[in-house]
Simulated assay, not measured.
Amino acid sequence: MDALKARFESHPERHPGVTWEDVARQLDDARLRALAYREETCGEPDVLLYQELLYVADFSPESPQRRSVCYDRAARLGRKRNPPATSACELAESNGLELVDEKIYLAMQELDPLDARTSSWIKTPEDMRAQGGALFGSRRYDRTFIYCNGADSYYAARGFRACFPLE
Rank of each mutant, 00 (worst) to 15 (best):
E9N: 09
E62Q: 13
D112A: 12
G43S: 12
E110P: 00
G159F: 08
P12I: 11
L4G: 08
D22H: 12
L111I: 14
C163A: 09
A130M: 08
R79D: 01
R161I: 12
P165G: 07
A3S: 09
Q65T: 09
V47R: 01
S138M: 14
N82P: 00
R31V: 12
A162M: 02
Y141D: 14
D152C: 08
G96H: 04
T41A: 04
A85R: 01
L35S: 01
G137Q: 07
A24L: 11
L49H: 05
S94K: 10
L77C: 06
R73C: 03
S87C: 05
R33A: 15
G132Y: 10
E167Y: 11
H11A: 09
R73T: 10
A6E: 04
L49E: 00
Q109L: 11
S120T: 15
G43E: 02
R31D: 12
E62V: 13
S60D: 01
S153G: 08
Q109R: 15
A134W: 05
V100Q: 02
H11T: 11
G78H: 05
L106H: 06
S10P: 00
I104M: 15
W20L: 07
P61N: 08
A151F: 12
E110Y: 04
K123P: 00
L27A: 10
S94R: 13
R7A: 10
G96D: 07
C89N: 02
R33Y: 08
L135Y: 14
M108Q: 15
L166E: 00
V56S: 06
L48N: 11
R79K: 09
M108G: 11
S120N: 04
W121N: 02
R161G: 07
D112W: 02
L99N: 07
E98G: 09
F145E: 12
C70P: 03
L32Y: 03
L106E: 13
V56E: 05
N82L: 07
A130I: 03
Y37R: 05
